[in-house]
Nucleic acid binder design. Structure first.
Lengths: 136, 136
DNA sequence: ATGTTATCCTACAATTTTAGTAGACTTTTA
DNA sequence: TAAAAGTCTACTAAAATTGTAGGATAACAT
């Protein structure tokens, strides 16, 4: 399951997606409208900024903006930044690979199955974007 | 990601799958051969038994057996017993559904996407079985 | 009957992760 | 230079994870 933090991140990002191309959006605005704890949201937006997904401006009139179009931000990328690996096992993760102990990766049956599962999940999450999450 | 407990469960189940139709297998045997902490493994096998996946026999000559053929035990079932929900959000879970706060399920875009992702993942995990994890 | 072998059950505990909070600091604008 | 924003570091409470300990119970052999 996705952490609460990740769900907050998605809600904040969709909010920003709806303001794409407009003036920066303040943390406090997102916090109130999306009902996300302010100080927690600070961390989240900062993480997303460090991952180059957002840009920010300080001072009056400042706030956050998406750095690229909502259609170019896929869901897998967001999940990886905030939530971590998408794969069900570390040894099948593309971005967070870790060797599993006591198993031979070439023959491990568990690994084979989790590879297939990962591919199926990823096919969706890498294709769908923030834009697909926006309600018209 | 699957918890370590779930990975242990799969390893134990594959071990039992390889002994399907044979004499019961002792916890201690599985513990040693699969390198799973004994007392932790006790809990795991007990959970699986309560979920009607295993049968057990006490006393000398006792141990555990799969209750049904490895081909009839799909991976989604195991994950749900030991790990919990497969869906990425509680509000899209078939077996662990929980209403999400502050969102209208009919229109929520995040929910729509996670439904599609869940279906893709589930299609694999419900089709693949313990048998598929066994190495010939 | 009784001892041995195995599972079953309840409780506890250390560690890690999650979900936040607090407060000072920096930058931008008016 | 004051106000309005984001930035940064540190801390904390609660929950989940990953186990351990020890006795109770059941089956079997002798």
């Amino acid at each position: 399951m996705l952490s609460k933090k990740t769900q907050y991140a998605f809600r904040a990002l969709v909010h920003l997606a709806e303001n794409y191309g407009k003036d920066p959006v303040k943390i406090s605005t997102i916090s109130i409208q999306q009902k996300i704890p302010l100080k927690f949201l600070e961390h989240i937006l900062n993480d997303l900024k460090k991952a180059d997904m957002l840009e920010s401006k300080k001072g009056k009139g400042g706030g956050y903006n998406l750095k690229v179009s909502p259609k170019k931000l896929n869901l897998a990328t967001v999940i990886r930044i905030i939530n971590g690996p998408i794969a069900l096992l570390p040894c099948v993760s593309l971005n967070f690979y870790e060797k599993c102990i006591d198993c031979d990766e070439k023959t491990c049956g568990m690994r084979k199955m989790m590879l297939i599962a990962r591919d199926a999940t990823l096919k969706v999450l890498e294709k769908k974007t923030l834009y697909d999450m926006m309600v018209e």
